[in-house]
Amino acid sequence: MDAIFIQILNGLDKGAAYALIALGLTLVFGTLGIVNFAHGALFMLGAFCAVTFQKLVTLSVKVRDEGITAFVAYKEQPYLETWFGDTGRIIIDYSVPLSIMLAIPFMLLVGYVMERGLIKHFYKRPHAEQILVTFGLAIVIQEIIKAYFGANPIPQPAPEILAGSANVGSWVGLGNNLVYPWWRLIYLCFSGAVIFAVFAFLQFTTYGMVVRAGMRDRETVGILGINIERRFTIVFAIAAVVAGVAGVMYTPILPPDYHLGMEFLVLSFVVVVVGGMGSLGGAVFAGFLLGVVQSFASMNEVKEIFPGIDQIILYLVAVVILLVLPRGLMGRAGVMDD
C-alpha cells in the first residue's frame, strides 16, 4: 500500500511536468494550428531563467573572513548579503521561486517575438514544414544556451526550508515512515495552480471566451470584427510562459542542462497525441495518466514480470491508444483528420 501510494505521488509529479508542457503545446496547436517542436526549448529556457537569476543574486565580492583570526582569510560574500543582510540571504535562499518573476516577462517577450517573427509566416504552410522549422529553432536555442552555460547540468538548490521531506504518511494514516520530498509536493500543487489558472482564464474571462470561439471557428470570429490573430499571439506568449515557469520550478528536481528541452519534448508530444490533438483537458489528463503509468511500470515488482517495461511503457501506451482511438483520448472530430 505504501509503495503504491508513493508511486502514485511520483507519477503525478512526473505527470505534472508533462501536463504543463503538453498544455502549452495543445494551446498553441488549438489556436494557431502550429505544431511547435520548439516548445521543449521554451521549457529549457525557463529553467535557465532560474539559473541566470541565481547567478545574478549570488554575484559575490571577496571580503575578509572575520571568523578566522589566526591568519588573513577571505571568503566570497554575495553583494545582496552585504547590502541587505538577512533579507539578502533570504532572497538568495529563495532564488528558484523568485526567479519566476524574471521568467514571466522574459518568456512573454520570447513568445511574442517568436510568434511575430517566425511562427506567423507558417500558418498556411504544411505541418511537416512547421515541424521542421521549429525543430531548427529548437536546435538554435539549445546551442546558444550551450555556448553560454556549458554542457553540464547546473544544480539549483530548493529553499532550505523545503529541502527535506514531508511526512506524507501521517497525513493519510499510512504510518510514519512514508516520506516524500517537500519540493516535489510543491511542484505538484504549483502545476495544479497553473493548470487551473489557464483553464479559468479561458473559461471565465471575456478574452478567454473569444479565444475559445476562435479555436472553434476562427473565420466567423474574424467576420465579427475581432482581431483574432492578435489574441492568438498573446495565447502563444501565454503558452511560452506556462512552459517557462514549469521549467523554473523543475530545476531543483532535475538540474537543467541544454538538452533538457528535447528530452521532455518527445514525451510531451506523445502526451499531446495520446490526449488528442487540440484538446486541452485531454493533454492534462494524458499527462498525469502517463506519468502515473510510467511510475508504476518502474516498480521492481512489475519489472520482474515484464523486464524492461519501464523503458518502453509510455511509447507502448501511445501506440496502443493511437491504434485503437485514432483521435487520442479526448480529441475532437475534425482536428488533424486527413
Binding site: 505544431v35 505541418h127 515541424i131 518527445v266 508530444f269 506523445v270 497525441v273 490533438m277 523503458q311 518502453i312 511509447y315 507502448l316 501511445a318 501506440v319 493511437l322 485514432p326 488533424m336
Partner: peptide
C-alpha cells in the same frame, strides 16, 4: 502527425 509520432514511438522503444 500521428504517423510521425507512431514511428517516433517505435524507434524510441
Amino acid at each position: 502527425i500521428y504517423f510521425s509520432i507512431l514511428t517516433l514511438a517505435f524507434a524510441q522503444m
